[in-house]
Design a binder for these strands. Structure first.
Length: 749
DNA sequence: GGCCGTTTCGTTTTT
DNA sequence: CGAAACGGCC
């Protein structure tokens, strides 16, 4: 293989060829950043570097997958041997090898955010603290912040600065919670996402021989999206590169959008200080977008104060102006976008896959989906509710996790009474207290339950323990797939789902089968050397997306958040919801830095487009249960108007629903809010569960009668969540929306 | 313990 | 709005 470098421009070539010594590539949007990385790796291998000695780190799974595919296409099978992946996946792999050094089991569990929050909730409760003050979310955020800065609980507790901070915030016990949380995670043999990085740092700090091994092993390190790394990640790479000093980082400060996870542009500045011999290369020519798009993006980003000097330019054609769609409501906005896509497809002979619709929050996808469905345009959603977050999937995974690691407290809590075996919350809480008091693991107690208690509950617990023990045996002789199938069967999970013949039940059953298939594929894949269930679970914990059948059909319009869109490009891009408070997000407007990050996010969105960019906003929008009137985003004003074509495509003014003022807004203004009494009770939003196994005869528009609330009209029927619950939107007197029990409704047909 | 209805609460992005 | 916590009752 002879690598052809003529297709690269001068700075790109420089970045590829400068293999020895530290290198920083400041790469503007669309400047061929990934290309440089791939050529660089190919070049290294061509110069007979063993792929095993190259480590390429990315920030997201998607970026890692894309890089892997492209490099495999270029250099073939050898690419498999490169250590390439996200920070979290690569270092969880290393932690797995070296777990003993940290006194962790090698099959440690990885807690996702839900596990962490649930664990914190128990800890807060056990510590008898007020969970209104110590909200699990807030506490977890604080702990995460500390870990990203490599502050251990020991340091945190003794740090006067943090203590003062917590006192002011009214949360003096924060340090103690951090400590308890870490100890419980450790006892459960579990690490959360931040621990994966934190503990890698600890491993390298306390075990010089381990560090030494990896330092010498990895001769070349590459970090993609360097602007998104936090201190913890930076220090890991710095340590790993300390021997060979062949660290290449690629990034763009204008696209730094992960400060909320501790990413710090400061890393770029520190990098220059840490490596005086650093070579810096700037890629400023954009090959992706039209001149209009590049220039309008530049006109936006110059409003940011904090940025490196860089001038992105392009040789490409001028292109069409940027379109701006002004709609009266969110629903109309979606319709207009769908219509626009339809017309563009016809006029330009384009395919679905040429389009992407980007938004700030996942919740915004709903309207757009509906509009696309109505126009028969196929789409796919990236991110959002993932396959792995479905209840039935989490249930089976919890079983598998527990089979692999009997100390996993969160998994145990999830499965011990699933299917129902008469072990309630009270019992579980009691067991946890027992375990803590005697300083043994929960499993120790459950495995020998008769020494602690007797009676019917004890029998149930003993039966559960025996079930788990029977899987232990299977683990020794069978492969991951066989164990998983056995667990699914013998735990009763599969049976319970199989018996549920509702459409949702059938789909849940299929999902579980799909998970089992995935495990089978994992086992059958010759590329995977380690076929244990533990490895599968760790891999899966770090995944967020699922390649289902929908995603395999490539010709679909792509819907996703701007965060997920980073690194991708599309011919035509729509950015919807360009409204103040939504984008920039209301939650982000705390400081000037926050606003700048939102602006960079918009910059990322704009620069995804190759040929055509369309922005849209709605004058009123359904949000948090209310219709709110909206102001156009300040970012629209910051765009240079000469590149914009305002296509005021909303219909008539009176078509716009009049924005309604709601209780929440009055409340904010300080006015007293009265609850609307229903039948004398202050039932503002009555709701109820029902069994969808009842025939779903209910349709919008039907007149129904409720024993308590009287007659009304059904405005919507929907199934809620994965549980056996559903809600009816029920309009009474044309004004108020109530949520009612389905079971008790009389249907007047 | 578990069902069922009620209340509260968070509402952003990813690993 | 929707998820999850809560609380009363069998």
């Amino acid at each position: 293989m002879r690598l052809k470098l003529d297709s690269l421009n001068e700075p790109q070539r420089e970045a590829v060829l400068h293999t020895e010594g530290p290198l920083m590539v400041i790469a503007g949007a669309g400047s061929g950043k990934t290309r440089v990385l791939i050529y660089r790796i190919a070049h290294l291998i061509e110069q007979s570097t063993d792929p095993f000695r190259i480590m390429a780190l990315t920030f997201t799974n998607k970026a890692a997958n894309e890089m892997r595919q492209r490099i495999e296409k270029m250099i073939g099978n050898e690419a498999r041997n490169i250590w390439m992946g996200t920070f979290h996946s690569i270092f969880s792999r290393i932690l797995r090898f070296e777990a003993e050094r940290l006194n962790y089991p090698s099959n440690f569990t990885i807690y996702d955010t839900d596990d962490s929050k649930s664990l914190l909730r128990s800890i807060i409760r056990e510590a008898a603290l007020d969970d209104k003050v110590y909200k699990p979310n807030v506490v977890l955020g604080r702990i995460s912040m500390a870990k990203n800065r490599l502050i251990s609980w020991q340091t945190y507790i003794n740090d006067p600065f943090y203590r003062a901070d917590d006192e002011v915030a009214g949360r003096p016990e924060m340090g103690r919670l951090y400590k308890l949380y870490q100890q419980r995670c450790f006892k459960s043999g579990a690490m959360d996402f931040d621990d994966l990085l934190f503990n890698t740092n600890v491993l390298f700090r306390d075990h010089p021989d381990v560090l030494h091994k990896y330092q010498h092993r990895f001769r070349y390190l590459l970090v993609d999206e360097f602007q998104d790394t936090n201190v913890s990640q930076y220090l890991i790479t710095k340590k790993l590169a300390a021997v060979h000093r062949n660290l290449c980082v690629v990034g763009d400060d204008a696209q730094s959008i992960y400060a909320f996870r501790g990413a710090d542009i400061q890393n770029i500045l520190n990098f220059e200080k840490d490596y005086p011999e650093l070579k810096t290369v700037r890629l400023e020519q954009n090959y992706r977008s039209t001149r209009n798009i590049v220039e309008v993006a530049n006109s936006l980003i110059k409003h940011n104060d904090r940025q490196l000097r860089k001038e992105v330019w392009t040789d490409n054609e001028q292109g069409d102006q940027i379109e701006l769609i002004k709609a009266s409501s969110d629903a109309e906005e979606a319709r207009l976008v769908a219509t626009s896509i339809f017309e563009d497809k016809m006029n330009g002979a384009l395919r679905n896959q040429d389009f992407a619709i980007l938004y700030r929050t996942n919740a915004q996808s709903r309207n757009v989906e509906e509009a696309l469905r109505k126009m028969n345009i196929k789409y796919r959603i990236v991110g959002g509710l993932s396959f792995y977050q479905r209840k039935e999937i989490k249930d089976l995974l919890a079983y598998l996790r527990f089979v692999v690691n009997h100390n996993d407290e969160e998994a145990l809590k999830r499965i011990i009474n699933l299917p129902k075996r008469g072990i309630g919350d009270t019992t579980i809480a009691k067991l946890i207290v027992m375990a803590n008091e005697n300083d043994v693991s929960l499993w120790d107690i459950i495995g020998n339950i008769y020494t602690a208690m007797s009676g019917r509950t004890a029998n149930s617990i003993d039966a559960f323990a025996n079930l788990i023990k029977s899987f232990d045996l299977a683990m020794q002789t069978k492969n991951a797939f066989e164990v998983a199938s056995q667990v699914a069967r013998e735990s009763g999970l599969l049976k319970e789902l199989y018996e549920d013949k509702t459409p949702e039940g059938i789909s849940r059953y299929e999902n579980v089968q799909e998970l089992l298939n995935a495990i089978k594929e994992f086992v059958d894949n010759p590329e995977n050397e380690d076929k244990t269930l533990g490895t599968f679970l760790q891999t899966v914990s770090l995944l967020t997306s699922w390649e289902d059948d929908q995603n395999k059909d490539p010709d679909r319009v792509t819907l996703m958040t701007i965060h997920s869109a980073k690194g991708l490009e599309f011919r035509n891009v729509y950015v919807v919801g360009m409204e103040e408070d939504l984008f920039p997000s209301q939650m982000m407007l705390n400081s000037r830095e926050d606003l700048e990050e939102e602006r960079r996010l918009f910059y990322v969105a704009i620069t995804r487009a190759e040929k055509k960019l369309t922005l849209s906003y709605a004058l009123s929008r359904y949000r948090f249960g209310n219709i709110r009137s909206c102001e156009p985003s300040r970012f629209l004003q910051e765009l240079d108007g000469q590149y914009l074509k305002v296509t005021r495509r909303f219909r008539t003014e009176e078509a716009a629903p009049r924005p309604t003022r709601f209780a929440a807004q009055f409340k904010r203004a300080g006015a007293p809010v009265k609850r609307i009494p229903v039948n004398g009770k202050s039932a503002h939003q009555p709701s109820a569960n029902f069994r969808p196994s009842d025939p779903m005869r209910l349709k919008a528009g039907m007149t129904v009668e409720h024993p308590k609330f009287g007659f009304g009209t059904v405005s919507a029927v929907e199934v809620q969540g994965n549980d056996r619950k559903a809600r009816i939107n029920f309009q009474q007197h044309g004004e108020k929306t109530l949520l009612l029990s389905f079971a008790k409704l009389m249907i007047h047909e």
